[in-house]
Nucleic acid binder design. Structure first.
Lengths: 230, 230
DNA sequence: CCGTATTGAATGAATGTTCAACAAGCGGCC
DNA sequence: GGCCGCTTGTTGAACATTCATTCAATACGG
């Protein structure tokens, strides 16, 4: 009994459909399928209301299957967070490499990567936020979220240093880097919670605007007058 | 049976002790006591693991009492969030009034208020974050959190406008205001999750640093060289 | 003593986990 | 090719636990 809903719930499943159904699906494929369903459930119902039954139903499988591929609910959630952290890190690292050597281009690419559709959509943001909410009281989550931030922020600190040298700014690189990366995370939060008038593009533009204030010799201001004054 | 721990768990209980114990405690006092215990539990165990029994135990009362003063767990949590939102709003509004008429002073006061000890401590930040994590899937929470942000951000937008006029900056007020308020929220997140080396003072300094970049004619840079280069 | 706050055991619902049964693939064997 | 086990993924019902809620009994204040 395959529910049609589960097959088209997330538009980003680009794996061949015949690989995901039937008994032939490999172990790894099935694990990924369950992780996807977990993210769906976290986004739809929140952390507290996410149940094994809901995850299984979302994946179009039966209840017992989750404990077969993952030992427990805890392990499933950790694997899900690990997957999101890996995906996020791979994404910005790729963007960084593609940006070349210029630090301003690199910082711009990093920020753009944060607001890329594949990373920054309501589904994933809601899942991230669900984990953040529990991170305080769960060392495992805190480590995974912390690892995410640490590497990312080291890169931003380094970029701030190089931009400071190039542009002759007088900010404190560490402090500014902390502010910038915090702003990016805060914008994610706004995107997830705020009204719909805060779009991905608006958040990105806002980040670029602040970058233009901090690094005036490296970032151009968007200078668009088409914004509605609310 | 009064647990000693509950009496000294939170250092900020300045209400007279004899008002909080015994049967004389008024309805309102008892509600507040339970709300405090709820914040404690959210901070210590996270949203998902917060139970009625834990709240009652934290307050030094018996299990059934919560359903007497609040009808249900849901109502207790909403009341708790409402309390935190009210407290937060009252705090920054007071800071705003006290700052006088100068927009730069006002913005500085607003930012300082965000990092004030009474508001910005691990206990409350963890509770806020717990609610954020569930807000996506709970309209009631989303409304309360959203209301918090909306008023706050309108003030910041207005301050950005006035500062722009005064200083002749060329940023877009709305966009910059979004970035600034997002940064403040992001710093809260960092304070809660990040390593202990990110202190309240460091976060505040970071915010001031970015403000100095955005409004160079209104905010002085801290220019401290005592920061360790990590 | 009356009314009300409080207690704590009982209840019932929700849910994570287990497990015995089942089915699908698969390789060997006649 | 067809039959037979064997391994392994899968199922769904049964089980155990946790927890919000209820409520009759109790204790305290007035």
């Amino acid at each position: 009994m395959w529910s049609v809903a589960s097959a088209m719930k997330t538009p980003e499943k680009d794996a061949p459909a015949d690989e995901r159904r039937g008994r032939k699906a490999s172990k790894e494929t099935r694990r990924q399928q369950l992780i996807d369903a977990t993210i769906d459930s976290l986004a739809k119902r929140g952390y507290a209301e996410t149940t094994m039954a809901d995850v299984a139903e979302g994946a179009g499988l039966s209840r017992g299957i989750v404990n077969f591929h993952f030992e427990s609910k805890e392990k499933l959630l950790v694997a899900t967070l690990q997957y999101m952290a890996d995906e996020y890190a791979a994404h910005w690292r790729a963007a960084l490499v593609k940006a070349g050597e210029d630090p301003a281009r690199q910082l711009g690419a990093l920020v753009a990567a944060d607001f890329d559709r594949s990373i920054c959509n309501k589904r994933k943001l809601a899942a991230w936020c669900a984990f953040w909410g529990e991170a305080k009281s769960r060392p495992t989550y805190q480590v995974l979220c912390g690892a995410r931030d640490a590497a990312y922020q080291n890169v931003i600190v380094d970029l701030c240093r190089r931009l400071k040298e190039e542009g002759g700014y007088d900010f404190e690189p560490f402090s500014t880097a902390l502010g910038v990366s915090a702003m990016l995370e805060g914008l994610w939060l706004r995107l997830m919670m705020g009204p719909d008038e805060v779009t991905r593009e608006a958040a990105h533009a806002s980040a670029r605007d602040v970058l233009a204030s901090i690094f005036p010799r490296h970032f151009e201001r968007a200078m668009r007058r088409d914004r509605k004054i609310a």
